[in-house]
């Protein structure tokens, strides 16, 4: 008997935590999205789909959805291309490569908030070196953090930089799992280095790339909150306010609980679709490549 319940006992701590801090809030989110809270927060009124209606007709919400889409797309694609190029370089067998790898992996340890203050400094008008570089090169000194669309670009730069370490580690692991004999065979058949890259390396990296896309989309959409909060606080004129930033503002600055819950429901549904696609198409490829 004791033997039978043993595996369940092992699962108890994990499931208690998950039930209270994930399932229950998920249930509450769906429930609250159909209610409106009284001004003092002590009573709930059922309002049906009204929160969702005001959500989808809100210009600000649509704008923040578009901002998120642009921000995530550019950051993920740009970041992955740069990371792949870096990984190809770090895959070369030259003296001291271990040191270069360690140094280039390092941004992994950097938090989104730290990335935010570092780039806010580099892009600042007087003390910032990037601003100064722009003045020398282009005779222009843009106000990075307070003009559209530069503020969004600034956050993209900080996020791409912060994600480099993680992405390069994975791409490099992927490159090293490709058998050297494939390249030798291709070389004998007369393939040049561009051919080898396009016909061998990139196709064989596709499972890792898929995994990295999924991870990067989640990081970029959510963890960039800290970078945004430190660099622009959603400004100028909400042009760097992503869905998660807007959720925070509606929930904890404007105290519009029903509206914020409707926003949460949308995010939960997006993540559910994401999870489904990940396990349908990605999991096998990634775990058993």
């Amino acid at each position: 008997m004791a033997k039978k319940i043993f595996p369940y006992l092992l699962l108890v701590p994990t499931f208690i935590i998950i039930a209270i801090f994930i399932y229950y809030p998920a249930f509450q989110t769906f429930k609250l999205s159909f209610y409106r809270m009284s001004p003092f927060g002590n009573r709930l009124f059922f309002v049906g789909f009204q929160n969702f209606w005001s959500l989808f007709t809100s210009g600000q919400y649509i704008q923040s959805a578009l901002t998120t889409l642009i921000f995530v797309t550019v950051t993920v694609i740009g970041g992955l291309i740069i990371s792949l190029l870096l990984a190809l370089l770090l895959n070369e067998r030259v003296p001291g490569i271990g040191i270069f790898r360690t140094l280039i992996f390092a941004p992994y340890a950097i938090s989104p908030a730290v990335a935010g203050t570092l780039w806010a400094f580099l892009l600042s008008p007087v003390a910032g070196y990037v601003s100064y570089l722009f003045l020398i090169l282009f005779k222009a000194q843009p106000q990075w953090l307070t003009t559209y669309p530069l503020a969004l670009i600034a956050i993209m730069i900080a996020t791409i930089w912060k994600n480099l370490g993680f992405n390069v580690i994975f791409f490099l692991a992927g490159l090293q799992s490709i058998p050297q004999s494939y390249y030798e065979a291709a070389t004998i058949d007369g393939a040049n280095s561009v051919h080898r890259l396009l016909r061998i390396t990139i196709p064989l990296l596709s499972p890792i790339t898929f995994y990295l896309i999924v991870m990067n989309v989640t990081f970029t959409a959510f963890s960039a909150f800290a970078t945004i909060d430190v660099m622009t606080q959603g400004g100028p004129a909400n042009t760097t306010s992503t869905l998660i930033y807007k959720l925070y503002q509606d929930g904890f600055v404007n105290f519009n609980t029903g509206f914020a819950s409707a926003e949460s429901v949308v995010l939960i549904l997006i993540m559910a679709i994401f999870t489904y696609l990940y396990f349908k198409f990605g999991q096998k490829a990634v775990f058993y490549q």
Binding site: F222, F225, S264
Partner: peptide, 20 residues
């Protein structure tokens, strides 16, 4: 357990989690 893999409650369900 699987379904919680991409459900960062502290981000996307932050309002009810705060109420808890």
């Amino acid at each position: 357990l699987f379904v919680t893999l991409f459900m960062p409650a502290e981000l996307i369900m932050i309002v009810p989690l705060f109420q808890i």
